[in-house]
Each structure stands twice: as structure tokens, then as C-alpha cells.
Nucleic acid binder design. Structure first.
Lengths: 190, 190
DNA sequence: GCCAACTTGGACCGATCATTCCAGCATGAC
DNA sequence: GTCATGCTGGAATGATCGGTCCAAGTTGGC
């Protein structure tokens, strides 16, 4: 039960990062961190310091892991804006499929961010996010076929994506989001 | 000091909406709400119910105010995706300039969302948001001149915008964000 | 002028939060 | 085998949270 460290510090930090990632800062309690990392309170404090220190370490870890990919995608030899967006989408998709990120991508934050939403509201947000993911995948398939069409598709996708992020962040209720989804569905899809 | 109501319910709800808007749900304490609305605890609870009820009323108020504009922009007779995005940007810009929304738009949420970030980190986020706002305005000016160029511009803008939203939401530190800003600056601007 | 109705400010409550502390014990060195 | 090291689980602490309650006081109707 005691003696020498019984966990891998780096792995614990990775898990803590995902807890912050999923729940945001203020919705992440120490109990949630102990549950997510498997460490006890004492080990957590002894290893990483207090909550905000652990959060900052998580940020750094996140930046180290994912930032170079965006950097590479955005700073590469992409002559046109549409190519830049395509590269950006590619990175995002890779992250969605990243096996080191359980249960999806950054976007899944939205559904957990507003505890005051009822279950139906959160389910709606989750469903819209799943739909968005499908759209992203479809837009990338289109990119392989025809670049101009891909650019147009990415345009629509990003616009809808942004709408969803803004709206869910602002905490729209389930029925509000459903209405927006209906509007988004009317965007021409080719 | 007492007797009959000494405040305007609708105005109080508008102010409460902005408090939630700026701080998010869990970072909004009752004390912050009383400070933001000017009402006492009793008046707040007596008029709107508990915190989550007030949040839901704020959502509804928000939806009533802003949703029709997006609905109109996204569902109107826009034949091409780029036109849809242009309309979307127009609505966003209008909201940025909306005098009923003090201190800017939804995007300003980001800077307040992570209390564990130091002052420099939050200032960096704020500066990037200001830069983003300038980019949006510039993209709209371009839209007036040449529609295709505008579409390309909007593409870049949204991509960068989305990056910022994702990154700041994930809680990047100030220097991380500065690096991303440098990368974004390398996106061709015409 | 009087009374019922209603609002208001502030004290109060239990729950939960982040954080600290300590006794107990497994470990590695000798 | 012995001992110092330092990690571990759990109890304890003070602050803050959302929420409740009530006495004090003001209003409008009569």
C-alpha cells in the first residue's frame, strides 16, 4: 500500500489532462481527478502540487502533444487558403481518431460544460456533435476527389461547426439546438 | 427599501444573461449574479427561482434575441455555401457591434473561462480575440468587393477562428497561444 | 390612518470544495 | 534482519457554495 511510488507520473498527467479536457477547470473536482488518475489525494498533491498547478502542467502536456501537428499543418507549403483549411481538417480528424484520446475530441467538451441542461438537452448536443463529426469525415472524403468542391464543403462545415460551438457554449437548450440543426441541414451539401 | 418591486424584471434577466454569458455556468456564483444584476439574493430567488432556473431563462432570452438572426442568415435564399458563410459572418459582426452586449461578443468568453491561467495568459487570449475581430471586419470589407475572394477569406477566418476557440477552450498558456498566432499570421491573406 | 400584501437585506444552514496533516506501512540500502 | 525513507489512505479544516428563512419596512387600497 505504500513505500515507493506505485504509478507512472507521465501516465497520471496524461489522465489528468483528459479529465480537465472533458470537464473544464471548475467542473473538475479533486475527487474526479483522483478517480480519473487512480491516485490518492496525497499522491496527487505530493506529485503535482495544487489543482491550478496540475492544470498548468496539463496544458503544457497538451501543447507538447498536439501543438506541433497544428503548427505543421498551418505552416506547411499550402499555397491556397482552401488547402490550409483542408490540412486543418485533416489534423482535427486525426485527433478525433487519436487512440490516446478516449471518447473523442475536444468538441465533446460542449455536452459536459453545462450541468444545468437537462438530460435531453445534453443528449441533443451530443447528437449534433456526432453529426458534425460525420460531416467532417465526409468533407475530407470530398477533398480527395475535387479540391474546389472540398473547399466549399469545408466552408460549410466550418460555418456549421462554429455555429455549434458558439451556440452550445452559450448554453442553448435542447429544442433551440434542434432548430439550429434543422437550419444547418438546409445548407446545400454539394 | 421594500414594498413594491424596485427593478425591471426584463432588464435584470438581460443582465443575468450577460453574467452567465461571460463566466459560464459553474464560474457564475450567486454573488456574481447579485453584483451583476444589482438585485439581492431574495429578489433573485423570488423572481427567477434557483440558479439553474435562472440559467434556463437566460438561455431562452438569448435564443429569443439572437436565434432569429442566425436562422434568417442561414435559411435565406443563399444559393452558394460562400454566400451562407458571408451571411453568417455578417450576423456575427452585427453581434460584435451590438450595443446591448457590453464589452463585445461571445468570443470574449474564452479569456475568462480559465481562472488558473495567469494574467499574462489571459491578456494574450484577449489580444488574439481582438485580432480575430479585426480579421472578421476585414473579411467582410473584402466581401463587398469580390465574392470569391470573400469566400476564401472567410474560409481562412473561420479556420483561424475555430483554432482559437478550440485552443483557448482547451486552456493553452499564453506562450502557446502566441505561437499559434504566429502560425496563423503565415496564412496567405489574399 | 390603517391594514394586508409584498419586497428586501442579511443572517443562517448543510453540502461540497480545495487543501493540509498525520499515523501507518511497504520499500530499498546496508 | 534492521532501519531510515517517503509514499499512502483517510480524517480533519476552513472557505465557499447554493439555497432558505425571517424580521423589518414600504407600498397600495380602503
Amino acid at each position: 500500500m505504500a513505500g515507493r511510488k506505485q504509478f507512472d507520473v507521465d501516465e497520471a498527467l496524461r489522465r489528468a489532462m483528459h479529465v480537465f479536457w472533458r470537464w473544464g477547470y471548475s467542473e473538475t473536482s479533486i475527487d474526479r481527478l483522483t478517480e480519473g488518475t487512480g491516485l490518492g489525494r496525497s499522491s496527487l498533491y505530493g506529485t503535482f502540487g495544487d489543482k491550478s498547478a496540475l492544470f498548468r502542467k496539463s496544458l503544457h502536456r497538451y501543447a507538447q502533444t498536439y501543438h506541433p501537428r497544428y503548427e505543421q499543418a498551418l505552416a506547411g507549403a499550402h499555397p491556397t487558403p482552401s488547402a490550409v483549411v483542408a490540412a486543418y481538417l485533416q489534423v482535427t480528424l486525426n485527433r478525433i481518431a487519436d487512440p490516446t484520446v478516449p471518447d473523442g475530441c475536444l468538441l465533446t467538451l460542449s455536452a459536459a460544460q453545462f450541468p444545468a441542461l437537462d438530460a435531453a438537452g445534453q443528449a441533443t448536443v451530443r447528437a449534433m456533435i456526432d453529426g458534425l463529426r460525420a460531416m467532417l469525415e465526409q468533407s475530407l472524403r470530398a477533398a480527395g476527389a475535387d479540391e474546389h468542391a472540398a473547399a466549399e464543403w469545408a466552408l460549410c462545415t466550418l460555418a456549421t461547426n462554429k455555429s455549434l460551438a458558439v451556440l452550445s457554449r452559450a448554453g442553448f437548450s435542447g429544442e433551440d439546438l434542434a432548430t439550429v440543426a434543422a437550419a444547418a441541414a438546409r445548407i446545400p451539401q454539394r
